[in-house]
Design a protein around this nucleic acid. Structure first.
Lengths: 233, 233
DNA sequence: ACCTGAACACCGTTCAAGT
DNA sequence: ACCTGAACACCGTTCAAGT
């Protein structure tokens, strides 16, 4: 939309403040808030700063490097629950409070799950979370369970993000799919799925509410799955 | 690489077989096998058939439509476990045998999770899977549990796919991250994570083996999480 | 109806040249 | 060192024109 506005060859000569890596990442976070991590281009990012795309490469690096920096920023504002909480409450709080932070920055959850503990801001959370599990008696399984719980929850956030940007209109299309034609009476499983979708629509729950319900359900089941390790041992 | 080779304005005039939607999707599946669902362009797809990109739009549609057709094809060759199996075995088989099929077509798992039961080939699996859960006593929760189990497993396959295409060299970089510098002795949780990564490297397990182990672990935990619903009721 | 060939509006990335 | 401006090799999508 808006390109560089100065016609000088030098920003300082035009009385403009210099561009820094910090300012570039600030702008990238803002664009991510508006359009998601995959929703902006290097050119748009530079344009938002009144500069050319080359300066992004000069100060930060390629698209992947900028994206990692955005992820690091977002993760740094994630809540870090108190170490005194029991393990189940600790992870409930992290996963339930963490979701809105991630959802406000679409695409960050996906990249977080992908690059994992490469993100420096994630290290304090990993440290405390693994400790909480060790203390709860997960012992040698603590790191594995940690990865399992965070993956299960945040992968789902990633899917929610992607679904939102999908052109197919998401959940609405599923209502159509099932309400369009009567389901084969010889297929009771499908019939149940159909009823389910239509019930939710009839209860006039918004797509966000439906997604939120399923997220909470998923977190609860994942915690149950981890808890089973303690009772069996 | 290779564009259309005919200089005639008409394929039949040049003695070439006509292009059909089926052939286009055949080629798209093959390209997906080689480079993943996001690894080819409409131009490459048309080029593989010796045609221009316009013909893809003419016979099938835009990129999303072609991708959906590829997903449908791949899902149609997924295993459908016997309806006689107990619910845990039924889902174990589906999720464990389904993984290699999806992994051979990188990117399909991600889109499958995204569009869900919009894929016609998935309907028989949904029907039987929900029935198996109903019979096992999940009752009204059957469809919810079905979604939970398939999501949990196939989202992880999607992450494995994406990680493979990542330029960052994936798991190798995590070994470096942790072996590079001693971890702060005041952070026992991180120390455990570090040991974990180094142990796996020392056991000379390949990235594929590590991924496979974690997948099986995730499936087992998800099944445990579902099983907890039965015992508590 | 089927297909070509060109065009439009974009991408990420690189790099010589200017200050 | 910082930044410009142009270039390279791509994208997805559309569409008039040909047969």
């Amino acid at each position: 939309m808006n390109g560089p506005v100065s016609h000088s060859r030098n920003r300082t000569a035009a009385g403009l403040p210099p561009i820094t890596a910090t300012k570039i990442i600030d702008a990238a976070v803002e664009l991510t808030r508006e359009q998601g991590l995959e929703g902006w281009s290097i050119r748009q990012l530079a344009g938002a700063l009144g500069a050319h795309s080359g300066v992004v490469y000069h100060h930060v690096g390629d698209r992947g490097t900028v994206a990692d920096a955005v992820v690091d920023r977002v993760i740094s504002v994630m809540p870090l629950p108190s170490a005194e909480l029991p393990w189940r409450e600790w992870f409930s709080e992290l996963l339930l409070e963490g979701r809105p932070v991630l959802r406000r920055h679409r695409g960050v959850a996906r990249r977080l799950v992908l690059v994992g503990p490469t993100v420096p801001s994630a290290l304090p959370t990993i440290d405390r979370g693994v400790q909480v599990l060790q203390r709860a008696g997960f012992d040698r399984d603590a790191t594995l369970v940690y990865r399992y719980l965070l993956n299960s929850a945040f992968m789902l956030v990633a899917v929610e993000d992607d679904r939102q940007d999908l052109p197919g209109a998401a959940a609405g299309s599923m209502v159509e799919l099932f309400s369009a034609h009567e389901v084969d009476p010889g297929k009771p499983g499908l019939a149940a799925a159909r009823e389910d979708v239509l019930d939710r629509a009839a209860a006039s729950r918004t797509p966000e509410q439906i997604a939120s319900d399923f997220y909470e359900y998923t977190v609860a089941r994942a915690l149950d799955g981890a808890a089973a390790l303690l009772t069996s041992a």
